[in-house]
Amino acid sequence: MSIWFREEEPARKPRLTRERIVAAAVGLLDAEGLAGFSMRALAARVGAGTMSLYEYVRTREDVLDLALDEVFGEIDLPGPESLPWRELLARQLARSRAVMRRHPWVPGLTATRPLAGPNALARAELFHAELARAGLSGPALSAAVGALSFYVSGFTAAENTWWALVRTPEADADIRAGLQRHLERTAHTTLATSADVENQDFDGQFALGLDVILDGIEARL
């Protein structure tokens, strides 16, 4: 059962703290990714025995839930200024992408556990409230939130994977140029002329794709 759905036992007098463990978990995930994350490695990072961690969390999955929600807290919520729903959500999604670029393990985790921590819920509430005020409700509202969430996590996951393998803009340009030459030698004329495979502007691609989704949402209002 997720940590967010359980009643927590009273905290013991700490030798460590849960906050320190979570901060170390985020650092370990940033350095090693999910594949390199273990309670033993986490204990070594905080200078404690592995079993001592279980005085503060019950399971490895608890630590992952807490680390993920900690990182959601880095996605700044809007200030007091009043913005149109579309501009506000576009800004929030750009902030989400920036956080997922800093923490490449985040997109993969978001699909595997309930996002029910306080930071995740505050940001989900913002999206639902803005789109509800814009005029959506019921399944259409849920579908719109899902489309936006899946777009940012999917785009950024692909972006993170690409740069982890390719590493430099120069290598990226070489691959794109090679793909363009290959397409021009095939019978796929639409791809060769319209796929824009040599476009290296990830920021622009993200913003344009987001505009397309927001156009579709706005058309339903």
Rank of each mutant, 00 (worst) to 15 (best):
S82L: 14
A132N: 11
G178A: 06
R86H: 03
Q200S: 11
G154K: 07
L34I: 14
G204P: 11
A158M: 15
L34S: 13
A43G: 04
R15W: 06
L68K: 04
R12H: 10
L77V: 03
A35T: 09
T110L: 12
P10G: 02
R97W: 02
E8P: 02
T186D: 15
P139W: 08
E7A: 12
T193H: 10
R6N: 10
G79S: 03
S137V: 15
W105C: 06
R15P: 00
Q92T: 01
L136R: 01
F127V: 05
A67K: 03
H182N: 08
D62G: 04
Q180P: 12
A124Q: 07
M1A: 15
G135H: 04
G47K: 03
W85G: 00
G117Y: 05
A94D: 07
T17N: 08
F37A: 09
G36L: 12
T156W: 03
Q92S: 05
R181Y: 11
D211I: 01
P14L: 03
S149G: 14
R176H: 11
L109I: 04
R185K: 08
T112R: 15
R60E: 04
S137L: 12
R6V: 10
V26W: 06
D215L: 02
V152T: 05
R20Y: 03
V22Q: 10
V26A: 03
A11G: 15
E125C: 09
D76C: 07
Y56E: 02
F155D: 04
A171W: 13
E198F: 11
T50F: 12
D172H: 12
E218W: 00
T186N: 13
D172K: 05
A124N: 09
E55L: 15
R45K: 12
V63Q: 00
P84K: 01
L126H: 01
W162D: 04
V166R: 02
P139F: 08
I213S: 02
P78W: 09
V71R: 07
E159R: 08
R220M: 09
N199I: 06
L165N: 10
A94M: 11
V26M: 06
H182W: 15
Q180T: 15
Y151K: 09
E32A: 14
W162P: 01
Q180H: 13
A98Q: 13
L210A: 01
